[in-house]
Amino acid sequence: MKNIIKSGLTVFIIATIGTLLLAWVYSFTSPKIEEQKFLTIKNAIEEIFPNQTEFNEIPEYKNKVIENNINIITIYKVELQDGKEGFIIRATYSGYGGKVESLFGYQDQNCKGVYVLEHSETPGLGSLITSKDFTNQFINKNLKDPFIVKEDVQAITGATISSRAISNAIKIIGKFYLENIYGGNK
């Protein structure tokens, strides 16, 4: 009996010390972690709108499924230096190897660019959807365009499905943007 109490007490003391230590580490790393999350988004938005001055979340569009497999996580309204405004839509959609998470930039009736945050496409093929060579073709592309791979969209060699997934997502989310956000704010 005495042994059990002693053993239990030892575990308890060590666990308490461990927890306190972790709480201390957490207290100074957690603000940093939040800051890093914010910075990732901020850098990505700057990649699409280099002249941004401020961006804010539009709360009413959080976690909205707009079409099979395309899921809007959130939408940011971006103020630009020239007084105009653009929109960033953060969404997930199905690629070849699983879910892809990207930021899509829209302004007026154009796509302003894509930034892939997370993906699990085939290394060396589908993973090239993150490369500038591929994503630059979407900058300033009119949303009325057909967005069909191998016609008006250059596909990545050997990764047609990944390329199609991303251009489809731009088109469908773009449609959503034109109908709900662009018209509504004008």
Binding site: L21, L22, Y26, T29, K32, I33, Q36
Partner: peptide, 13 residues
Amino acid sequence: TTIVDLVMKAYFP
């Protein structure tokens, strides 16, 4: 391990 995890998340995201 938790310390490594937190520090990595904070400084090498």
